[in-house]
Design a protein around this nucleic acid. Structure first.
Lengths: 143, 143
DNA sequence: TGTATAATTGAAAAAGATTTTCATTATCAA
DNA sequence: TTGATAATGAAAATCTTTTTCAATTATACA
């Protein structure tokens, strides 16, 4: 029906082109994540995945998330409690604002921010290797 | 010797004024954290503390850190692996640049950044409640 | 279309960090 | 000093994430 490949088809191709095999469990996980509008934890993803793929193992969820992150398909969200959630990484590294209630996430950009971060690092004698910027709050629906 | 109260004396007063008792283990933990120049993990703090207070328990370290954070004396540092480290929160909430090698941390300010974050949140219909900005890299010594 | 091989899988166990439980000990107000 | 109660440390419990391992499966190639 759709002329252009769907997001999950693109992701599956990326996995395959990177030398990973396409398997049932992997397809299911990729499909859920590619269509996801909010941050999901591994366990949530596992529960959703089991509906499609009853035998799915939690370990496979972790392993697939790891690969998707490595390929830049998915972005890790760090939570205050130390656990992680995952979001589609639509357009490379972006900054996030996340609803503390429902997990809804939106992306925002700050063009000049990266330059600013590099400048700050330089002023302190540091070489910058990674940066995190996450905003937490309540979305329009939850407040 | 010192006319003005030391940092750790100030912290101990804060604890006491907040209704917490002053105990040996607590004093040791406070003294280490108040004098600390780099981010420490609970286990590191525990090891350092045991040198002063051999019977010290790891649980007490966690509980004391919790109280110090609650009182704004200490700031939690979120690590990529999900574990936490702690730093003196010298002047309220500040942004951090942390050495991935040695844990050395420096603070920086971005006066206009808080305003920017609020604006971003507003544009997305969010009410901002918390923000994280952490830079990771290598310090002058480690690179 | 088989077939070999190497990647992938899921269960169970292990590893770590953090929290809870609980009996004992210590602080501090009266 | 004493009594109420906060704080302590050990052990056990939780929870997330990782590792191990034998069985299964995708894929390249004959």
């Amino acid at each position: 029906m759709s002329a252009s490949p769907t997001m999950s088809e693109q992701w599956l191709s990326t996995l395959q082109n990177s030398g990973y095999r396409l398997t049932g469990p992997r397809r299911v996980i990729v499909e859920i994540m590619a269509a996801c509008e909010r941050a999901l934890g591994p366990l949530e993803l596992f529960d959703l995945g089991r509906k499609e793929q009853p035998g799915l193992g939690l370990v496979t969820v972790y392993r697939t998330l790891e690969k998707m992150e490595e390929l830049g398909l998915v972005q890790r969200v760090h939570q205050p409690n130390g656990c992680h959630m995952y979001l589609p990484a639509a357009r490379g590294h972006q900054h996030l604002i996340i609803c503390q209630q429902c997990g809804k996430a939106e992306y925002f950009e700050g063009e000049d921010m990266e330059a600013f971060f590099n400048q700050v690092a330089g002023e302190h004698g540091f070489t910058l290797r990674e940066h995190w910027l996450q905003l937490f709050g309540l979305c329009a629906n939850c407040k």
